[in-house]
């Protein structure tokens, strides 16, 4: 285990310190997140994996300023997050419910800009660019429910892009689309990330997806949640569905994360990985 040099040099954009989240309930409260501790430097693409119910969605909602935290601190650009920050966009897993069916695709993409007071020609242009970036040039006038699942998710991504966030948060965005669409969307994310230089937090329960997409994978333990492991993905930057997935290092990383998740299922809030793991190349 050796710490990654480049990650330490860049100033962290997002810092999560001793995050604890207890959902208040009638029976005293559910401790979803116990003690989370990690930071993300600017421009990184981090995948977060963990068993179902690990508290991934809870973590994202706390970071997005949608849920009040119980204790600890979340900082974006040095400022504590208490409400949804301006520099952040969230793509929810339930894309069908996240898009507004009473608005055209274009209006959906433009709405956040409209509410931010961006002028009409400017938001038109931004929406057109964003829809172009996700390959939906012709869908602007349609309604979300006239599109396929994969297309709807791309609209949700376009809406996030048009908002021009510094941090893009995605909660299992491709869980409900077919394998081929999923592969296409994964490549789309890599392209967007490289072109725009945004920081991306990508939650997934798919280990292969996390290794393929990320530069780093944070493995969460079972709820109440701590960081189980923090793995550097030292695969070549140019990724390709065929060659990357058959890379020997891909297999090594994947089985390492698989083991960590297996351990995570039995680990409830005890171990904490503080230094990133780097697997030695075979």
């Amino acid at each position: 285990m050796t710490p990654e040099p480049s990650g330490a040099a860049a100033r962290p954009l997002l810092v999560v310190e001793h995050l604890k989240k207890v959902y208040p309930t009638a029976t005293g409260g559910v401790e979803a997140v116990r003690d989370l501790h990690f930071s993300v430097p600017e421009g990184q693409l981090v995948c977060i994996v963990g068993p179902s119910g690990a508290g991934k969605t809870t973590l994202l909602k706390c970071i997005a300023g949608l849920l009040p935290i119980t204790s600890g601190r979340i900082e974006l650009l040095g400022e504590a997050i208490t409400a949804p920050p301006k520099a952040m966009a969230v793509v929810f897993q339930e894309y069908g419910r996240s898009l507004f069916p009473w608005m055209s695709v274009e209006a959906n993409v433009e709405l956040p800009l409209k509410s931010a007071g961006v002028s009409k020609p400017e938001r038109r242009a931004a929406a057109a660019d964003a829809l172009h970036a996700v390959g939906l040039d012709d869908a602007g006038g349609k309604y979300p429910w006239q599109l396929s699942g994969g297309m709807q998710q791309r609209v949700a991504i376009a809406r996030a892009l048009a908002y021009k966030p510094k941090v893009l948060i995605m909660d299992e965005p491709f869980a409900a689309v077919d394998a081929q669409t999923r592969a296409d969307l994964e490549d789309l994310i890599r392209v967007i990330w490289k072109q725009l230089g945004v920081t991306i937090l990508f939650v997934t329960h798919d280990i292969d997806e996390s290794v393929y997409l990320g530069e780093r994978v944070v493995v969460l333990s079972n709820s109440p949640t701590v960081v189980q492991d923090d793995v550097v993905i030292d695969l070549p930057a140019e990724r390709d569905q065929l060659t990357t997935r058959s890379h020997p290092q891909f297999a090594a990383l994947r089985s390492h994360i698989y083991e960590q998740i297996q351990r995570a299922k039995h680990n409830r809030g005890t171990e904490t990985a503080s230094t990133p793991t780097v697997l030695r190349r075979h």
């Binding site: 997005a64 949608l66 949804p84 952040m88 966009a89 339930e94 996240s98 608005m103 709405l111 509410s115």
Partner: peptide
């Protein structure tokens, strides 16, 4: 829909804008 509402909140739509949209 709570997801629609959270989406609107995450994009910083105010209370009145959420009622309207």
């Amino acid at each position: 829909d709570p997801v629609a509402n959270e989406t609107a909140r995450s994009y910083r739509l105010g209370r009145l804008q959420r009622i309207r949209h």
